[in-house]
Design a protein around this nucleic acid. Sequence first.
DNA 1: CGATTCCCCTGATAGC
DNA 2: TGCTATCAGGGGAATC
Length: 277
Amino acid sequence: MPELPEVETVKRSLERLITGSAITDVNVLFPKVVKSHTPGDFKASLAGCKIKSLARRGKYLLVHLSGDKTLVIHLRMTGRLVYLEEKDDLPRYAHVIFYLEGGKRLVFADMRKFGHINLIPTAQLKNMPELKKLGPEPLGKEFTVQYLQQELRKRRTKIKALLLDQTFVAGLGNIYADEALHLAKIHPERTAQGLTGSEAAGLHHAIIKVLEQGIKNRGTSFSDYVDGEGNIGTNQYQLKAYQREGEPCSNCGTIIERKKVAGRSSFFCPQCQSSKR
DNA sequence: CGATTCCCCTGATAGC
DNA sequence: TGCTATCAGGGGAATC
């Protein structure tokens, strides 16, 4: 599933391919994907716009266009945004096709149809509810040990639930939340308030570490994720907990367990990540 | 405030 | 072989 490292990789891979290109036409094959416009209005609003730059906020990919408009794209679980050469076939589950100059295309495809696209005036980005609610970027300077400690103290919820809460910190999903907790040796069901100061500091470090490693490995490709050129990442080979139920922990050899926490499958080492302090 | 459940959607998997 | 029931999961909404 595309989380921060995957969206960042999509962004980086597309950047050099589509920046500067003009959108010549748009074809919306599955209208529900575009939340902000009808297919006709979407096409009319985009025709002639030039792709100025790409950005990312949490798990959102932002495509800044000429005319002070921005495409806000969320891939959710199985969404893909891929660049196609003229000769390339359309991928399965293609829902929106952006035709670019020179016969190139940018395609939004999504098997599960959970992903979505909004086109909004760039000036209104900061007022957009979905973006406005997001917590700090975990790789940004706002996400400090102090911020983490102070937020943990406020919350009675389980730490796993908090890591998945995008208003707390933006960009972690099930994979990197489990990896960060494993690296920090914290059980997913520990309460946020119950963590010690040094555990919070360790978790802060772990979150940054697993995300940076994910980006370095160009994302985790488990089921559907590929970058903007359709290439899979390699971070799935580096995971220590996620999807490793029944396998020995890389630290201590204890068998990794799986349990539903905060409504999501959680993978953890019952030895390293003790539920007690 | 926090916990839980439903919903969206469809491929994979298990059970018959 | 082929059908059907169940599950996974990001995130928002509704409910308790």
